[in-house]
Design a protein around this nucleic acid. Structure first.
Lengths: 234, 234
DNA sequence: CAAAAAATATGATTTTTGTCAGCTCTGGTT
DNA sequence: AACCAGAGCTGACAAAAATCATATTTTTTG
């Protein structure tokens, strides 16, 4: 199918959300001519750890998890990426195989952009390079904070933090439930614990009245209490 | 005291080890005219979390720890930085306060470089910007791997890994002991555990014959065994 | 709709980790 | 040599987390 007007990079609103906003009209046009839009079903993989990427993926719709299998055989989710995020950027910049796997948590729509476009713009467009640099700086800070949390906080603290994060970043549905419905297993993989302990800890939070649930769906009932838990006060 | 020949950036060997190798002669000359060499004694702080930096610190000699205090009141060491590393780069790029504290683990010599030099070169020298970008990409990968390890490995596994890291990156002295003599407390802060458990775990490794020690100094006796421990095989 | 599969949940137990108290060793100072 | 401070170490106990087993509920699918 030929590209519609609305699916051309020049007209894409998504690019306002990432480093691509620093690209010039011409760069965008060229990019748009060779880009390729892909639909990815919930549960499908976008790429796997150790793959060699020939380009990056710009997320237009849906949410994905970026995870890595530890030597112990358990998965750790390092990041949740949504609309506007560019997946695979680090690997392309470093000319390395991917360090993480990307998997769709919902049905997704992503644009694949061949890496030569990225490389060219990194060489010729300082605005773009600086935008990417700032973005990487932000990611690095996020990662450092993540390290400190994983190392120093209890599962209960981390879980409270994740719930607040999910609310802040993905919002809630019409009924007030967290929009992103992570399985307990995925939630455990974010928190870095076993599924059972994740469930038990959620149960305790329910009993305390800080959250409620309907099936896998979770509602935050007491934001402040969760913040206090995350800080280790409760 | 006036700058000697050998302390001018143009002639400094250290810059071959970091992004500064991408700087042009002129940039280096200007940088050298406004840089300032500082001696920092073991235990002293280079900067503290939350400070506003007016420049970056290029490490010429000595080793420092980059750490952050968690809300629980315990310190987590996120990185050990040595000769060639540039401290404060992320904060300057992001125009933010520092996210980490930097403290000397040995007597150090660092060059303070006012941030306008960095900012100018980021705007005008694409080679430099790309070098910094690649460096940040490497740091980000390191951080992601660190997250996975902290989240999924036991203290014993992480400690084995740290010992091997210390050997690989800082080498050993004439007697075969690890060159960098971390206190047990600092070692615990890298591993993300309490000092007591760190000591107990070291003791166990001694009994197993995988390491030996003399005072605070540690010698690796069985590299392969430690590797296996790190991988969770033993 | 019913069966099967997957996800959620709970109990019992073991292992790992944290905490508190106190002891010992070492290196430096007077 | 005596003293001291700080680091290293150990024991006893408490708390947190992992593991295994086994329901129960929800979702998927034939």
């Amino acid at each position: 199918m030929a590209d519609q007007e609305h699916s051309r990079c020049e007209n894409c609103i998504i690019r306002q959300m990432n480093s691509f906003k620093a690209l010039k009209k011409e760069e965008l046009k060229r990019m748009s001519d060779s880009k390729e839009t892909r639909s990815i079903k919930k549960g499908e993989s976008i790429f796997r750890e150790g793959e060699h990427l020939s380009g990056v993926f710009c997320v237009r719709e849906g949410i994905s998890k970026l995870s890595k299998m530890s030597e112990n055989g358990r998965d750790q989710i390092v990041k949740l990426a949504t609309k506007g995020e560019v997946l695979g950027q680090r690997s392309v910049i470093a000319s390395e195989r991917t360090n993480l796997s990307a998997t769709a948590l919902e049905d997704m729509e992503v644009c694949f952009i061949p890496k030569n476009h990225i490389e060219d713009s990194l060489h010729n467009n300082p605005h773009f390079t600086n935008a990417v640099l700032k973005h990487m700086a932000a990611e690095l800070k996020f990662a450092d904070d993540f390290i400190v949390n994983m190392a120093q906080k209890t599962v209960r603290q981390r879980l409270a933090e994740v719930l607040l994060y999910l609310e802040q970043h993905f919002g809630e549905d019409a009924d007030g439930y967290l929009y992103l419905q992570l399985t307990r297993s995925d939630m455990a993989d974010v928190v870095g614990t076993a599924t059972e302990l994740c469930i038990r800890t959620l149960t305790k939070m329910k009993k305390e009245g800080n959250i409620s649930s309907a099936g896998k769906r979770i509602k935050i009932e007491n934001r402040n209490a969760l913040s206090r838990i995350a800080e280790g006060i409760d």
